[in-house]
């Protein structure tokens, strides 16, 4: 499967400051300066020196225990976080199915939100115009197009979010355990849509706790442990390591 490089992560580190006294008022700041007190700065490296390269069509499963840095890594690749150190290069259209509906406005109707959220994802108006009916039909919200989102159930909201996110044909698909959207019927439908995307030679980054799910979808695996890459390679080699880790 030698092809073009799709995602390249080079020595990426991500630092968070977990200062126990978070200074966000001017008074505390001035007092801190005047008394010469050192701000307790607990630095926490969510990612340490992570590097890997994916070629177009690779499907990477990211495994690790809670707090290993999986979601941070996905967010850094999606562009939400800027890595403290290192560099991430990616080619093509990204569909981040990270937090469905993060751009939604609750006072807006579904119609308005499709345009707003579409714009957040980088679509242009013409594209949304052509996909509008598809999105509504896929989310099964034909009757609620002009209802403000605050009156929606959480299932309806995530269905709409999923439909908008997957309206593109992405080159890179980022999945954070979102396969469980809505009821059983919608879940089947959404799974089918994602599997269909796989057929189009899309690069996938998938986070899950279920090794079974990862094995069925991915051809490569990456194990993160406390922010560091513990193992990276084909999924057949990675799966036993992860099994050993978790047992």
């Amino acid at each position: 499967m030698a092809g073009k490089v799709s995602v390249k992560v080079e020595n990426v580190s991500m630092k968070f400051s977990l200062s126990s006294e978070k200074v966000d008022s001017l008074k505390e700041y001035v007092i801190g300066i005047l008394t010469g007190k050192q701000m307790a700065k607990d630095e926490f490296w969510a990612l340490k020196n992570v590097s890997f390269t994916l070629e177009k069509g690779d499907r990477l499963g990211i495994l690790g225990l809670n707090g290993a840095g999986k979601s941070t890594l996905l967010k850094a690749i999606a562009g939400v976080y800027r890595p403290t150190e290192g560099k991430i290069t990616k080619k093509g259209v990204i569909a981040p199915l990270l937090e469905l509906g993060a751009g939604f406005d609750m006072q807006y109707t579904a119609r308005e939100n499709i345009y707003l959220y579409g714009a957040v994802l980088g679509y242009n108006r013409k594209f949304i115009d052509t996909k509008f009916d598809d999105i509504i039909r896929f989310a099964e919200l034909e009757k609620f197009v002009d209802v403000p989102l605050k009156n929606y159930s959480s299932g309806m909201k995530s269905r709409l979010g999923f439909a908008i996110c997957t309206a593109v044909e992405p080159d890179i698909l980022i999945l954070d355990e979102v396969l469980s959207v809505g009821d059983a019927k919608f879940r089947k439908k959404s799974e089918k849509r994602i599997i269909d995307m796989f057929a189009h030679n899309v690069t996938v980054l998938f986070v899950s706790h279920s090794l079974e799910q990862v094995c069925s979808i991915c051809n490569k695996g990456l194990i993160l442990d406390h922010g560091e890459v513990k193992a990276f390679g084909s999924i057949d080699k990675i799966a036993p390591i992860y099994e050993e880790m978790t047992s």
């Binding site: 999606a78 939400v80 981040p96 937090e99 993060a102 751009g103 957040v120």
Partner: peptide
């Protein structure tokens, strides 16, 4: 804040 933490804009 909610949006900034979740999507890139």
């Amino acid at each position: 804040a909610g949006m900034i933490k979740k999507v890139y804009v």
